[in-house]
Design a binder for these strands. Structure first.
Length: 595
RNA sequence: GGGCACGUAGUCUAGCUAGGACAAGGCGACGGCCUCCUAAGCCGUAUGUCAAGGGUUCGAAUCCCUUCGUGCCCGCCA
């Protein structure tokens, strides 16, 4: 795992050298060594803390430590202000970076030596209609994280927790069985989720207008839960006055809508490893077991017939009676709630994984905290981690499926791909129709995913078409373009060098900068994974592409007359190509060979 | 009422977890670069009380406190 990474090796060596001198000067001090912001040095020793202990000027200490340190062929030292700057020998370091990358090209990401089982739950949107852009960050963050864990060597599975027992779904089911399709507007897309969402929307309208509809839906919900609990999937759950609905129809409806939703995910290069249905944890008795367990808790209280955990001693905040801190886990009629089923699911999940990560909208913060507390109360030694994201909003405000004030993910994607197509056609007249299609799709999907992942999840995003579909500057196409350029050079240069080139001919600053940049890949991936900060990869790849563009500008490859140097530069292109395509792969963005 | 987030140039963001040298990019604006490996690129110019105030520190965008603004949540809904 990252053995022999030059960045780590050099900084460890520098620290050791500093420590050697410091042991005689101020043995108790732990030196502060960091990477300086400005260019011109690779590391610096911050001398202010030492100055404070020794009660001498930092500037003086910096130069004194500098002169006391033994000469090392790997670097040059220079005192500046209160800092002792360390600049690596440029050719030596670049050569080491290149050699490291070349030797590890096929397993650059691996950072764990023993696989740990990780389950990442994400998306988990109610199966009642197409995805809208408001929650589009969820599958993108979740899938990106999954890909990164996998690249880093973890054993990882992504799970979609399907809510097939909630009211939203029952509204949809009621609608499908009670509304005449002829009365509905034609669907905007021939896809199950788009076809069926109109039933959901119309059912909502009828429910708001007619209280008896809501009563019927609630009753269906109750009968459905009993049927599932008792294994009676064939049982009729609807009442006298409305169309006959069987328990199994609910699951069928969910699966139909989900088929459509899976299609949207696949279009985004998002693939789930498994779908876990809520009804499954009810059916197999997990929910019942959880309820029994919670009833034994010292925090358990009963009011009416309902049971809850009293969390007022744990959760902070005001104790006004209107804002009770209760984790209710059974209704007075004895039935379970969503949170109870969620708890059962998590208990099972934590049992089969070392780490469980949930990608959740910011509206789930409170609930997620409650869930964690309930798990602890049940004696679970593990609690899921949560990665929260803020919603994508429209310039005019929040999106809502119910009120039909949405941008559908499918529409956004289609627009992105068609916008990409016009860009491709603008530049390339030599491509076949299929090639144009393929490049447009890769660029369109990439632009979309990049835009959603580049921002820290907890920061809000306002959706604007012109930003989302901007193909210039810090964007996926910018990175893909550099990749395509590298591919083109390699192709025209006769393919990647069969053997490791002699890196000794590296002279140009932009060659060295490119290598320094690229060698950061394993470290960035590690930070993305262990810090659960997938957005860092986006910025890193922009930097890589930018460094490659500098190299491209300064260093002709195919026109280079000196054969070893030409080979070395094709080697550099190969390294850049592979690091960029690995990084893009982590982001679920395809790297075109040509564009 | 309370809890939890967020606030960085016209605009969008990085940097904040682990405080360090003049706050880094993108878009937009303006001006340049295709007889040379893909101009989705490159070069240059202009733009900032890092929301405000206080504190800790040799040093604060970063840590602490207060205030303001925005969003989310506080159901025997999911």
């Amino acid at each position: 795992m990252n053995q022999g990474h030059p960045g780590i090796l050099y900084s460890q060596a520098f620290r050791k050298a500093v420590l050697n001198v410091l042991s005689s000067l101020a043995p108790e001090i732990e030196p502060v060594i960091e990477v300086p912001r400005f260019e011109g040095a690779d590391l610096c020793l911050v001398c202010f803390p030492i100055a404070k202990v020794l009660r001498r000027p930092p500037k003086e200490i910096a130069s004194e430590i500098g002169t006391m340190m033994e000469d090392d062929p790997r670097w040059k030292l220079e005192a500046a202000g209160g800092y002792l700057n360390c600049s690596y020998d440029p050719v030596r370091y670049a050569t080491d970076c290149a050699h490291y990358l070349w030797s590890n090209l096929h397993d650059l990401g691996s950072i764990v030596d023993r696989p740990r089982k990780v389950i990442i739950e994400h998306t988990s949107a109610n199966p009642n209609g197409p995805f809208h852009v408001g929650r589009a960050r969820n599958p993108i963050i979740g899938d990106t994280l999954t890909r990164m864990f996998r690249a880093a060597g973890y054993e990882v599975g992504s799970q979609y927790w399907v809510n097939d027992m909630g009211k939203q779904v029952m509204i949809l089911v009621w609608g499908i069985h009670n509304i005449d399709p002829a009365l509905l507007p034609p669907p905007e897309r021939d896809k199950a989720d788009h076809r069926l969402v109109s039933f959901y929307q119309e059912a909502n309208r009828r429910m708001e207008a007619d209280p008896s509809v809501e009563l019927e839906i609630n009753s269906m919900l109750l009968h459905y839960e009993r049927a599932v609990q008792e294994g009676g999937r064939d049982r009729v759950i609807s009442g006298e006055g409305s169309a006959k609905v069987k328990a199994s129809d609910v699951r069928d409806a969910c699966e139909s809508v989900l088929e459509g939703m899976k299609g949207s995910l696949a279009d985004l290069n998002v693939f789930m490893d498994s779908f876990v249905y809520e009804s499954a944890v009810v059916e197999d008795g997990k929910v019942r077991t959880v309820i029994e367990g919670l009833k034994r808790s010292s925090l358990c209280r009963k009011e009416g017939g309902a049971y809850y955990l009293d969390l007022s001693g744990i959760l902070s905040g005001g104790d006004d009676d209107r804002f009770r801190k209760r984790f209710v886990f059974t209704r007075s009629d004895g039935t379970a709630l969503y949170t109870t089923r969620d708890l059962a699911y998590h208990l099972w999940k934590l049992n089969i994984a070392d780490v469980a990560i949930n990608v959740l909208g910011e509206d789930h913060r409170y609930q997620s905290r409650m869930l964690g507390l309930a798990l602890e109360e049940l004696g679970s030694e593990k609690v899921p981690e949560a990665l929260f994201y803020s919603f994508v909003s429209l310039p005019e405000g929040k999106m809502s499926t119910r009120r039909n004030k949405v941008v559908f993910l499918d529409d956004l994607l289609e627009e992105a791909i068609s916008r990409a197509r016009t860009e491709v056609l603008k530049r390339r007249s030599d491509l076949s129709g299929e090639e144009v299609d393929e490049i447009s799709r890769k660029v369109g999907v990439g632009a979309l995913r990049f835009n959603m992942i580049r921002v820290q999840p907890e920061k809000p995003i306002t959706f604007r078409w012109e930003d989302a579909l901007n193909f210039e500057g810090a964007s996926a196409p910018f990175i893909q373009y550099s990749h395509a350029r590298a591919c083109s050079i390699i192709r025209k240069g006769g393919g990647p060098p069969p053997d490791e080139p002699d890196w000794g001919s590296i002279v140009e600053a932009s060659e060295r900068e490119l290598l320094k940049r690229l060698v950061g890949y394993p470290l960035v991936l590690k930070e993305c994974v262990s810090g659960r900060r997938p957005h860092l990869m986006a910025g890193f790849l922009v930097d890589c592409a930018s460094s490659f563009n500098d190299f491209y500008r300064d260093c002709p490859v195919l026109l280079e007359g000196d054969a070893p140097r030409r080979r070395m530069r094709i080697g550099l292109c190969t390294l850049a190509r592979d690091v960029i395509s690995d990084g893009l792969h982590c982001l679920g963005i395809e790297a075109p060979q040509s564009m």
